[in-house]
């Protein structure tokens, strides 16, 4: 291999490395505007099964959790002062109740809102295997506590759960499945824009609006 061949190979290798980094960076950007839908199957101690559908919306420093069957949604914002602010919205009534931002800077668990799983817990999990590249990277992770087994398929570059199985005594008590998702999602942008048009009320003013039938409930 002459010097030119060597340099060409090095260039190709650097190019591929750079392309991979670009892919990862692109995922990092795209995962900030996400719509994702989950099926959540829970089994109670009595053996009763429930199925819920959870919609997750992300737009930069804002996150929405909304269950399909529920009129009420939770809308979280990480503020510029690194505080967590909660709004509750009510789609049927097109109303928002604003709560005060948490007072202690950075004392909240943003990851649980943003990616539905605690970051510290993720780092405790054991990596079983990793497949795919860039946005398609999938990791299989497990964690075993005294009574509970967790099996997670994690999309690290999208910061999304693909599936999560929680078992106790070899019985599945909760199972999460990613039904669909879209990156750089217009649906997420539309949802947040829609909420800005809802009539909002400060939590502390509920008591001064008792003649408003919405607040009587």
């Amino acid at each position: 291999m002459n010097i030119n061949q060597y340099l060409a190979l090095l260039f190709c290798w650097l190019f591929m490395l750079n392309a991979k980094a670009d892919d990862a960076n692109s995922c990092q950007l795209e995962q900030q505007h996400v719509f994702a839908q989950y099926d959540i199957n829970d089994v109670t101690k009595q053996g009763n099964k429930t199925l819920q559908q959870l919609n997750l919306y992300r737009l930069d420093n804002q996150v929405i959790h909304q269950y399909e069957h529920n009129n009420i949604g939770l809308w979280w914002t990480k503020t510029s002062h690194n505080r967590l602010m909660l709004n509750r919205f009510f789609d049927h009534e097109k109303r928002v109740i604003e709560y005060q931002a948490d007072e202690i800077t950075g004392s909240f668990d943003w990851h649980t809102k943003y990616q539905l799983i605690n970051e510290e817990f993720l780092t405790k999990m054991k990596l079983v295997k990793s497949t795919g590249e860039a946005c398609n990277t999938e990791q299989v992770l497990t964690y075993q506590s005294a009574e509970t087994t967790y099996q997670l398929v994690w999309l690290p570059n999208l910061k999304l759960i693909k599936s999560l199985k929680v078992s106790q005594a070899e019985q599945i008590i909760s199972q999460w499945s990613l039904v669909k998702y879209s990156l750089a999602s217009d649906k997420a942008k539309e949802k947040f824009t829609q909420l800005l048009d809802y009539k909002s009320t400060d939590y502390a003013d509920i008591g001064d609006n008792e003649n408003d039938t919405f607040y009587r409930r």
């Binding site: 420093n61 804002q62 914002t77 503020t79 510029s80 002062h81 505080r83 602010m85 604003e98 005060q100 931002a101 800005l196 909002s200």
Partner: peptide, 18 residues
């Protein structure tokens, strides 16, 4: 205004103005 660029240094919300 309902515009983040008008946020004050004391802003608690993402967009302070209504």
């Amino acid at each position: 205004p309902k515009d983040e660029s008008f946020n004050s240094t004391d802003a608690a919300s993402g967009v302070e103005g209504d």
